[in-house]
Write a protein that binds this DNA or RNA. Structure first.
Lengths: 220, 220
DNA sequence: ACCCCTTAGATTGTCGACAAAATTGCTTAA
DNA sequence: TTAAGCAATTTTGTCGACAATCTAAGGGGT
């Protein structure tokens, strides 16, 4: 189903993935303190595994750690959302431009058929699309940029924080159909190898998405 | 002297900073394997401290780790340089634009006087400028963007890899004066709060810088 | 009543031991 | 001679113990 899957080879990996999931989906609440010994019993692993996981989570801005004091899950704020989407717009815009240049014809074909799959699902029920579907679409374009630094910054970096905002602050409803059209136009631009248009459409797409979330944040 | 200094409060911090320095400056050679027990005796710390350092180095793309196999220092390649500067141009361009918008008048004044200091040093001897001076200039603009994600991606992320390329593949000579002029124009644009010009000049500045390094890479 | 200092408890930082996995080198069979 | 399999060694992964630091609670002085 999901196009991009991370491989968990070691216990530390598995723990990190589960831990991250729990934070992104809110099972561990934003702002809460992370006690290492507590977590080590909860996940049934040694404390060093927990420490490594916390370090990794810090790298992707999901927790904040202070020396000798401890780590807390990040808080979700309107200002944080703004900063996040500001860089996301720039980076994913760049990814779209590079994808228009660097994706193979085969990859573009696959992307088109992915979109057709999504179209069926948008018509029937909206649930899938907003979750894995949307992520899948963006992932493919990010990977299509073929720039390893860009890919790492987005996928290991900010993407899970983006998901955290979306999952916990709600993001669904009537925008589904609109967003799908935007995806279609982006892929069209990529098919035409129109780098500048692809970037522009992607930036606009993300900007719309931000506005959509912001309006849902009544407390502004 | 240097504007942005990281505070080392713990042994793991100190070890990480020294370790990173050794890699960036080539004391530990690109491509070499990192043996944890060896390093733990070399730096006179426990192995867990070394492991944490390696994890951190992996986050900023200075080493590559494979599970159950080990970590190696990254290799410096023309292709890697190209990818790196591609994202650097985009991110620092963005930083310049945001700095033009968000820096306080006081910060801009300070930036101007920093430039005057550099001017004296450029006239007398070139050494300082290309090292700390240039970094200092870029750091201030990055911090001036006031976007924490952007700051973290650049300073904790790619900046040390940029330095590694510059230090190890050589980067000095007649470009010093040119680069200084470019810095001056960028600050001018920021003073005028001309966001688009600031971004454009910064991107061009970095692009020139890349060309300068690439021509020094005879093996192309 | 308030503040500072001391002390006890809890939490993080660092270390080396043991377990699991990979690498190396030797032996043996085709 | 080569290749495959096994054994020994090295290296990484995981764990819990001990040390250093922070936090909280209580007592004494003003």
């Amino acid at each position: 189903m999901a196009y991009f899957t991370e491989r968990a080879v070691t216990v530390a990996d598995k723990t990190f993935f589960q831990f991250r999931k729990d934070i992104v989906e809110g099972a561990i609440k934003p702002g809460s303190k992370l006690n290492e010994t507590e977590l080590s019993t909860k996940y049934a692993v040694g404390r060093s595994v927990i420490r490594e996981a916390i370090n990794r989570l810090e790298s992707c801005h999901l927790v904040e750690r202070k020396a000798n004091i401890g780590a807390r899950v990040v808080a979700l704020t309107p200002e944080g959302l703004r900063e996040l989407y500001q860089v996301r717009e720039s980076l994913e815009g760049m990814a779209a431009r590079l994808a228009a240049k660097n994706m193979t014809d085969q990859e573009i074909t696959d992307l088109n058929s992915l979109l057709n799959t999504h179209f069926q699902e948008v018509k029937t029920g909206d649930s899938y699309y907003q979750e894995a579907g949307d992520l899948d679409f963006h992932y493919r374009i990010i990977l299509g940029s073929k720039n390893s630094h860009l890919i790492s910054m987005l996928i290991n970096g900010i993407y899970h924080l983006v998901r955290m905002y979306r999952v916990q602050l709600g993001m669904a409803g009537p925008r589904v159909a609109t967003a799908f059209d935007e995806h279609k136009h982006i892929v069209q631009a990529i098919s035409n190898r129109d780098e500048e248009l692809a970037e522009m459409l992607m930036r606009r797409h993300i900007s719309y998405s931000k506005n959509n979330i912001e309006t849902k944040l009544a407390g502004y």
